[in-house]
Simulated scan of single mutants.
Amino acid sequence: MILINLLPHREAARKRRRETFYAMLGASALAGGVMAGLIYVWYAAQISTQQATNQMLQTEIKRLDEQIKDIANLQSEIAALRARQQAVEDLQSDRNMPVHLLNEMVAELPDGVYITSMKQDNQTVTIIGTAQSNERVSELLRNLGGRSPWLTKPELVEITASTVNLAPRDQRRVSNFTLKARLLRTAEAQKAASGASGAAAAASGASAPARS
């Protein structure tokens, strides 16, 4: 006996394929949604971690900025203390500067040179006087510039010729001069003296083999 299937089998096959396609499409969408959710959660965790790190770094930066400000304030206070200490030391050393100045003028003043006025402004000394000749003024400049341990950098400001009356009929030509020099402080004079002694010792040591 021959059996003939009269049911619409093509329609049933298409229906099964359509249902299978929809099921696979739904499973793919569900898998994609789950994967997207997992990626979102991972990125959110990374962002949260980075934000926490940034917050910690900002807190540390603020703390370091405060420490830097404290250090800058300490440095300013140290500099102010050093400046005050140096000012006190300068005042203590400057107390003896007029004494050294007078001693040097007595020691270095050549014969025939007379001082009429002397003024000290900080470390600058202005000397006004009269000399018998220009050569006497030059000798005074050489003495102050080369031999004096307390006076340095002498500079002739002005020199003029004039006459003085020694008697009713006796006149003599003289040179009126004005010069300036720098008066060294105690520390500067000691440093210059030590440098000069060291140079002299080096020169004597270099010349000793030549004599032998």
Rank of each mutant, 00 (worst) to 15 (best):
A83M: 06
Q86W: 12
V164C: 02
Y22M: 05
P110A: 03
R147Y: 07
A192G: 00
I115E: 02
G112R: 03
Y40S: 09
E188D: 14
Q58V: 08
G32L: 14
V99E: 12
S212W: 09
M56L: 15
M24Y: 01
A201M: 13
N5I: 10
Y22P: 01
N165D: 11
I2L: 04
K69A: 14
D111E: 13
I68A: 14
L74S: 05
I71D: 06
S207K: 12
N134F: 10
A161V: 15
L74V: 06
A29H: 11
R10I: 11
L6G: 04
T163C: 07
E139F: 10
R10E: 14
G33V: 11
Q50P: 00
Q50G: 00
G112S: 06
V41E: 05
L57C: 03
V41T: 08
V157W: 05
A201Y: 05
D170P: 00
T126G: 02
R82F: 14
M56A: 15
I2E: 02
L184N: 04
A199V: 07
M1R: 10
S212P: 02
D170H: 04
A201F: 11
L7R: 15
Q75K: 13
I2N: 13
I47R: 08
A206I: 00
P98E: 02
I68P: 09
V41G: 08
I2T: 13
R211L: 05
I115Y: 01
E11D: 15
Q120H: 06
L141M: 14
G205L: 12
R142W: 11
Y22E: 10
Q92Y: 15
G112W: 00
A167V: 08
P149Y: 00
I78V: 12
A80G: 05
Q132H: 09
A52G: 12
